[in-house]
């Protein structure tokens, strides 16, 4: 009779116990969490993993995209005609503005030359497609289809046909992450289009309306006012529509009014977005006499997100 071996057969060898493994990986995760939250030194790792993952994501998307294209190909004639009519109507409606734009631009260029102001934002924009929305319920993010390969840089403003949608916060080789204006950590310097009052629009997170914070109850802001970017932060070009005031709560017991806004841009709807080229570099600004005053005033409102 063969003796029973002291060691179990190799079939039973499974390495460390699950508890040991979960303890090891759990600790490792916690260290990673801490390092990522505190020092932000893992961005390169993130980029590398993202770059490796992208072709796989892309390949997995192919069947769905093919189906989409097939559906578009067989889109009913009726639908196309309707679309066509609507687009024509929109084009005509916008014609006066478009025609006026060229001459206004020329005028502005002359006036700027007159007061020796530099061009505030560079020309050029990149059209991007929304790939998917971040699943994280704690943050409002989108992923779009172009990255550093198209010359995108973090910090660029992202808009759609109606208004500001957000800002590029991370740029991968072929994709980018957009933080939406509704994100809890996002702020846009704005001004009231009607009264010119300056403020900062803070996102409030999923399902909550963005707010204008730290506005005195006496501030000249009314329900229905449009807030446009003030351009004070050097991130967003001035004059882009951001939000419309939807509710004002002027409680005299509070120091600040509570002003809620609805985003004008299709923050959770648009499928095609435009990434604007970043504005001209800031360090040149102090030379300009009229900018110095603006800067000192707007210094406190400069709460743009780093990166």
């Amino acid at each position: 009779m063969r003796p029973i071996p002291a060691e179990p057969p190799p079939f039973f060898h499974r390495g460390p116990s699950p508890l040991a493994r979960v303890a090891f990986f759990g600790l490792f995760s916690i260290v990673l969490l801490f390092v990522d939250a505190r020092y932000r030194t893992l961005e390169d790792v993130r980029h590398a993993v993202g770059a490796v993952l992208y072709p796989i994501q892309r390949a997995l998307r192919v069947p769905g995209e093919a189906l989409d294209e097939l559906a578009t190909y067989f889109a009913s004639k009726n639908e196309l005609e309707q679309d066509n009519a609507r687009l024509r109507a929109e084009l005509i409606a916008q014609a006066p503005a478009a025609q006026g734009y060229a001459s206004s631009r020329a005028d502005i260029a002359k006036l700027r030359a007159l007061v020796q102001l530099k061009e505030k934002h560079a020309e050029g924009a990149t059209i991007v497609e929304v790939l998917y929305a971040g699943r994280d319920p704690f943050a409002q993010k989108l992923f779009v289809s172009r990255g550093s390969e198209a010359g995108l840089v973090p910090g660029s403003a992202v808009i759609d046909e109606a208004g500001v949608v957000g800002q590029l916060t991370r740029v991968y080789p072929t994709t980018s992450e957009v933080t939406l204006v509704t994100d809890k950590d996002h702020a846009v310097p704005v001004k009231d289009e009607r009264s010119g009052v300056r403020s900062v629009l803070y996102g409030a997170g999923t399902g909550r309306a963005p707010e204008l914070r730290f506005m005195p109850p006496s501030a000249d802001i009314r329900v229905g006012d449009r807030m446009v970017t003030s351009g004070l932060d050097g991130t967003y070009p001035a004059g882009l529509a951001v939000a419309q005031v939807s509710r004002i709560d002027r409680d005299t017991g509070q120091i600040f009014a509570r002003i809620e806004c609805m985003p004008i841009g299709g923050v959770d709807r648009s499928g095609t977005l435009l990434v604007l080229a970043p504005p001209a570099a800031l360090p040149a600004r102090p030379e300009e006499p009229s900018e110095i005053e603006t800067k000192s005033k707007g210094g406190r409102a400069k709460a743009r997100r780093a990166g």
């Binding site: 759990g26 260290v31 971040g134 699943r135 994280d136 991370r170």
Partner: peptide, 24 residues
């Protein structure tokens, strides 16, 4: 979990920790 952290742009280790515990 780490891959999901990259895809979802969440903190590194967040999904990883959750999935490791789930597997346990």
């Amino acid at each position: 979990g780490l891959l999901m952290d990259v895809v979802d742009a969440t903190l590194f280790g967040q999904h990883a920790l959750a999935y490791a515990v789930l597997a346990y």
